[in-house]
Design a protein around this nucleic acid. Structure first.
Lengths: 208, 208, 208, 208
DNA sequence: GATGAATGAGAGTTCATTCAT
DNA sequence: TATGAATGAACTCTCATTCAT
């Protein structure tokens, strides 16, 4: 089993390594991240790091797996029975914030991974993102009451517009702030306003 | 004059260098991009590259200038007097496709620059983008007849939704095909459909 | 502690590196000295050299420290209570010869450092020399019985004449022979003759 | 004939090149001196420089020859019949100052050459200096009235002491100031004092 | 004869990875 | 299993010298 050497470590050491690595990669990106900084921060030897993960790339891919687990915790806490798409999206956003408070490093790492250019890991990141989004969309659009939408528009395309709006808004906010810590309530208010515009325009008049 | 040595080269060689550099930077990002690869691909000597551009950073900044010129060609061909925002956006999009077919590498480079993290060039990229966006928005939204829009929605945010939709759709198409050469009429039709949805939902009823 | 990585090497290797570096810097000066030549001669890898000293400059500064230690060994062996300046100078000279036989490279390096022009290390060299000279003069001229000198001459300037004579004679001998190993008793006799001339001329008649 | 291409240039251009080269080598030393700076200052092309002198080293050696000519002008103006060694030495020093006013760049170049470490030209410089000194001494000690010296000291060795004192004092002054321009009358006074000490000590009492 | 663009070996430096202990 | 010193390929950049024009 891959990473088995790492999993058999005592949890405290494991966390020290994960946090040191998340931090270094988030700060410096894949290429510039220094394995020296990681082992210094985690207080392990150089040899150990390569024993556990074989290579810098191996370590990075492990961390990608790790943050996926964190993301999945988000999905576990969402109420998937909500039928109004905008209420559901808002709920998902709120859960994200909650989880973020517990795993800030993972989110910063994930944010930096979005902008990662290193050819060595780019395709893995893209694959991961496609999975995450597909997975999220599938669950997100289950049980939705599509009858609320106007009947003179193509629903599939309308969903795309909603999705693109959500993702683009999120990215815009990400670029504005240095870390997720800076995000406050006023952002959530702005988010609501976008939802209201779309609700007003895409729903039938009587559903508003 | 800066870059004068480079401009006095024969055009064929100049293009070889530009294309090799655009490709390498687009593929690998600023840090990882290797000047060795560039000179190998462009078939010039090590000394020459640094004769023309002084440094890796100088080369990168030159390329940024170069792609701005390409972008400006787009602006020059658009009919800025159109008052209907969707017609104007469609026109801009079509010109973009046309230019892209002539300078595919420039677009890939510009896209990669958006995600560039290298501190050495980040501020220049940001400056460039602010200029491009300010310039584009100013011209793009001049003469637009905003009275066509519903009066119960915030126009600024609605414009964002429109923009995000356009960009995201374009990117989605790019991911689907290997090159823009593959893009045919059916894509333009789909594009029209998105425009129609937004027109129907964001414009007053009598404007449709 | 700085240079700690270097000090924890086995002495044989340490010496190989020191000697290779002293030789290369002495031969070529700071700028022209090639770290490649040093590692080749010392039979270590490129990475190791920079592991130990961080940079070419770091290596050079280390060597300056090293030769100071060698010089201090001279001072440790001299009888500082001698009151006759000529006897004392002769004693110092003899110790210098002794040390030189053990560390010939250090002396050549120190000599080349005197003429070093490289801006990067010049100030460090000057600082070092000021310390060495201040230290040496202070100890060297302590306890000297200045009353032996004629009263119609400026003592400070006379000391300069004595010093310049000693140094110039030493250098002349160095240029004549290939190594100090060749220096025999006849040189010491000649040295004595210079001392006798100066004694006869600079001391009062009754002190001769 | 070597340098023939250079000598057939018009004198104005020749001087421009000589001065530019003297300045650059004096400022930066042999290694660091940039042929680019020289051709820029002299307003000639890169190819020309190498046409005239074949190589950087060739140019440097030419300049050494050139400054020898300047030095020889000093010797031409000295009164070689003076029989008192100290008066003669003083006269030589004064002529040096006079010539310096006419060829400051040559002197600064010569000064920098003294401290030159570059292996490529070191031996040539040393050879030149030995010639200059031998030549100077031979002429300088002709016609001297040695009977003025005390009879209880070896004259040859005493001459050495005098020479070493003169040279060392000159070097000390050189190290103190940045260029010969800074040297003023007070230096000449100090020089006189050294001469007086030596006169008093090395001459017979009745000759003072 | 004059030009200056082109060359490429060599410079100092970095850092993921290896392996003897 | 854990260590960390050793490695060396690859990096960006320099500059004296060449040679086609």
């Amino acid at each position: 089993m891959i990473y088995s050497k790492f999993y058999s470590l005592e949890p405290e050491k494991r966390e020290r390594i994960i946090n040191a690595a998340l931090k270094e990669f988030a700060q410096s990106g894949y290429e510039k991240a220094s394995t020296n900084n990681i082992i210094k921060e985690a207080e392990i030897s150089k040899g150990s790091l390569f024993n556990y993960f074989n290579s810098k790339k191996g370590l990075y891919l492990f961390l990608l797996d790790y943050v996926v687990e964190v993301i999945n915790k988000i999905y576990d806490e969402v109420d998937w029975n909500e039928t109004d798409i905008f209420k559901k999206m808002k709920a998902i956003g709120l859960v994200k914030f909650k989880i973020y408070k517990k795993f800030p490093q993972a989110f910063n790492f994930l944010k930096s991974a979005t902008h990662e250019n290193a050819a060595e890991v780019k395709s893995e990141i893209n694959k991961l993102y496609k999975d995450l989004i597909a997975n999220g969309l599938e669950r997100g659009y289950k049980n939705i009451d599509w009858t609320k939408f106007r009947e003179d528009i193509d629903i599939e395309k309308t969903i795309n517009i909603i999705n693109w709006t959500i993702l683009s808004f999120a990215e815009q906010q990400r670029d504005k702030v240095n870390s997720f810590e800076d995000i406050g309530m006023e952002v959530l208010d702005e988010w609501d306003e976008y939802f209201n515009i779309m609700k007003r325009c895409f729903y039938k008049e009587e559903e508003q």
